[in-house]
Design a protein around this nucleic acid. Sequence first.
DNA 1: CTGAAAGCGCTTACAG
DNA 2: CTGAAAGCGCTTACAG
Lengths: 345, 345
Amino acid sequence: MITIYDIARITGFSPPTISKALNGTGGLSAATRTLILQAAKDLGYTPNMNARALSTNRSHLIGVIYEDHYMLKGFKHPLFSDILNNFRKVIEIAGYDLLFLSRNLGSRRVSYLEHSNYRKVDGILVMNPVPGDPDVLELASFDRPCVSANEPIPGICTVVTENRVAAEAAVDYLVSLGHRSIAHICGPRNLSAPAARERFEGYRAALEKHGIRYDENLVEESPFWHSEGGYEAARRLFYRTRDFTALFASNDTLAFGIKEAVEERGLSIPDDISLIGFDGDESGMYTSPALTTMWQNTEEIGSRAAMLLLQKFAGEDVPELIKIPARLLERGSCRKVATKFEHGL
Amino acid sequence: MITIYDIARITGFSPPTISKALNGTGGLSAATRTLILQAAKDLGYTPNMNARALSTNRSHLIGVIYEDHYMLKGFKHPLFSDILNNFRKVIEIAGYDLLFLSRNLGSRRVSYLEHSNYRKVDGILVMNPVPGDPDVLELASFDRPCVSANEPIPGICTVVTENRVAAEAAVDYLVSLGHRSIAHICGPRNLSAPAARERFEGYRAALEKHGIRYDENLVEESPFWHSEGGYEAARRLFYRTRDFTALFASNDTLAFGIKEAVEERGLSIPDDISLIGFDGDESGMYTSPALTTMWQNTEEIGSRAAMLLLQKFAGEDVPELIKIPARLLERGSCRKVATKFEHGL
DNA sequence: CTGAAAGCGCTTACAG
DNA sequence: CTGAAAGCGCTTACAG
């Protein structure tokens, strides 16, 4: 491996001068600068990031916190790879690399904060923390910038889908198709992550807006975000009532389970029940009918989170919370129903 | 941030002694060792990995090559996050961290090799390279260990699903259900990655084994691995012939597209056509019927790849190619048909 | 515009 | 069993 000392020896300049030329810092003459750059190129010089990081105390590394935890029996972040990929595109062209932040340091168990100090990461992206994890909350005191994707954390700048508004739009859509009896199966509302609560609020707001009485009999909660949870919740719902023509599911995975329960009862989607999900999971394209859903803009979430981090690196002020609109993805699981008024004609 | 100098000052030992105690190297007395370790703990010492990496020339970093490229219109690695998660679990408890290897170095465009030298990664995992990418092939000359998951690369140790055998098993299964006319829609066979070719070979081998004549009219190739490709290929197949009762799809995503084409023709799965896929994608659980498929053991692929890398770090010899068996995942898209013989009874 | 000196925090021979 | 010296490859004041 060739170093700046090699370039210094060959060009006749001193190592600090080589360093300045390579980094574009310090006022060198254009001539020496191009000379040095050329030599570096000819020699196939690659900087040693460990040395650079040691002296500058900046690693050009961004730590990612992503736990593939199964505490909640199968909970997984469905949008993870999309968000991460889009985040990565932005930070890479800015010269940063992505590092998974673990809680191991050799065989020792450590916090994310310790690991961040160990690697001297310049910033952190929080993706899929264990809900309420103290090791994550502690990150707010990290002396370098953090952002969170889709998961509000006190003291950390967050980019998140506009859950409440999008849920309201989902129900608006069902109403526009003529539905008046709309059930809701929500995700776990007791978690620190507010997605399930916000979507539920959006549901209620939409009903109210359209003058539909809120009926708690039409709402069922799944303690988990997975399809089995959706299935069980739908069964509980059916046990109580069959008095609805549409159902809004708090996410797509729940919707898949709900669909099973509906079919098990001999009912058809969308003929008997219109079903709308949330996320825009690709899987929903392959069910029959394909699942209509509120699509989370993972590209925007990922790239905005990255841009925020870069802005923070540049010392700019950024808002604490950024909401990204979702979009309706009309596929085949909802249908227009005759309203009572039309019936009467 | 506290350093070994701080610990040295406080305990009265020299920095090298502190280093030896911390690393468990060098013959220190048990007393000083515990004394130093205790002091380190009390002070909340975290080593600076940049300094350590600079002096040892080892970073305890493993580079991951994963390109989310869309060259082939929508090609994505469906098993990516599963394999990566399982890989990560193993290498993290061994004290390594995962770094995404990009082809950027600041604003400069570089090869993976250069980036690896820049970060001094101790090893590399190749996950989803652009097929035939010279920057990947070049990695075989990297002076540190590399492994590849699911993609054979000359000179690099690879862990891959036993495609040929698993494809044969898929067709065996169809035969066991009484099918004798079995179509095959294969993925792109012209790529450097041999998966489509190997699965096609398995298909032929199974036919031969069961004394079924190979009929090229029953085989159609999709130029891409995505569902649109499967859809189009199935339409071409139907245009030519309807003379089959079962179909083996080279992967699940193709199968989803095939399913659409089948239904579009007014045929039902599995009543008219039994369909089997390959991958074990979770999405297949949510279609109706759920997709029967050959499941790739992503946990095994990821963890084996990690173990191989660790073995290489330890200087052990490892095989160049490791094949992981797939498993049949019986869901609902295949059914038993009456054989001619049974008919006669 | 360029360079000599010192430092970033650790480890590796080597000596005693 | 412990420490003084030198080095890993770079950068940052500072001086000229």
